[in-house]
């Protein structure tokens, strides 16, 4: 399956929120949607969920317009919230049935997922008695209980302890391997890097950059080296101002030309006691900041 956003425009009153969004997500791999607050992520998701229509452009599934009567979408909203005063199983059934399941299937599916996420003991408790992390797990169930073809996860990892985060990771990976389309939105770049092969960075209602993460990273000039060495002071002294201190007590060397990389590396390794040396690749975080934070500065200029 292929989910395609095509030239989506959307305004609320005078405010243009989306200015021609296009990207394609494929089943069997997670797609990361990144962007600062107010960049248009939630609006894009809501258009996908048919909460409102786009002003122009279309969302296609395998080249055809979405048929909402047949399409099941699961959604984990960034703003979490269910009914605090209702029993957990009761509200899970309710949401499952709202998405078109019949009651007996809903009961079965809810029991399966409660078991799977280790929440069976809370089945008949009210939601408000759960810790925040456990409430999150219940919320996750509402997104996947009806076996949707498309799953939209907005900040799925916020507020989870490492054990629960791992549980969620496994669950999400399993859903991806089942061939579902998973859209992933997060500010926690490490998770995006871990899950998503494809990303789109939204900025101010437009796609700033999109594509395969590795390709994006490789598109940067490979003219920086990062190294760890006990001879740090000596290297700085010998090489002068092409050296700068980098994070975690390591050094960064910026080469005038990327082609000198090989020569410089062998020189360093032969002359100094080097613990580790690698070509610097920007992290997703660096890319994100460059594409979304830089915009404002350019405006100022």
């Amino acid at each position: 399956m292929k989910l395609q956003f095509k030239e989506i425009f959307k305004s609320f009153g005078e405010k243009k929120v989306l200015k021609g969004i296009s990207f394609t997500a494929e089943s069997g791999m997670a797609f990361g949607i990144l962007g600062r607050n107010g960049a248009g992520k939630t609006t894009s998701i809501r258009i996908l969920m048919n909460v409102f229509a786009a002003d122009s452009g279309e969302v296609l599934l395998d080249g055809k317009k979405l048929d909402y009567s047949n399409l099941k979408i699961g959604y984990l909203p960034e703003e979490r919230g269910l009914y605090p005063k209702k029993k957990i199983a009761e509200q899970l059934w309710y949401f499952a049935e709202l998405k078109g399941m019949n009651h007996s299937d809903a009961v079965k599916a809810v029991d399966y997922w409660l078991e799977r996420l280790g929440m069976t003991e809370y089945r008949d408790k009210k939601l408000e008695v759960l810790s925040k992390g456990n409430q999150q797990k219940i919320q996750l169930i509402t997104a996947i209980v009806h076996d949707p073809q498309i799953i939209v996860l907005d900040e799925p990892f916020s507020g989870l302890d490492p054990v629960n985060a791992m549980l969620l990771e496994d669950t999400v990976k399993e859903e991806i391997s089942k061939g579902k389309i998973v859209l992933f939105s997060s500010h926690q770049m490490n998770y995006i890097e871990e899950f998503c092969e494809q990303i789109a960075i939204l900025n101010d209602g437009q796609i700033a950059i999109s594509g395969n993460i590795r390709d994006i990273k490789r598109s940067y000039k490979r003219d920086k080296l990062v190294l760890r060495s006990d001879d740090k002071e000596k290297i700085i002294k010998d090489l002068g101002n092409i050296c700068s201190l980098y994070e975690n007590d390591s050094l960064m060397i910026t080469l005038p030309e990327p082609e000198q990389k090989k020569e410089m590396m062998s020189k360093l390794v032969s002359e100094y006691d080097i613990d580790e040396i690698r070509v610097f690749e920007p992290t997703l975080n660096d890319i994100f900041v460059e594409y979304t934070g830089g915009e404002k500065e350019e405006d100022k200029k």
Binding site: Y75, P77, E78, R80, G81, Y83, T142
Partner: peptide
């Protein structure tokens, strides 16, 4: 309570 986020979708 933001249950609306889920309800509306």
């Amino acid at each position: 309570s933001r249950a609306m986020e889920l309800l509306i979708t």
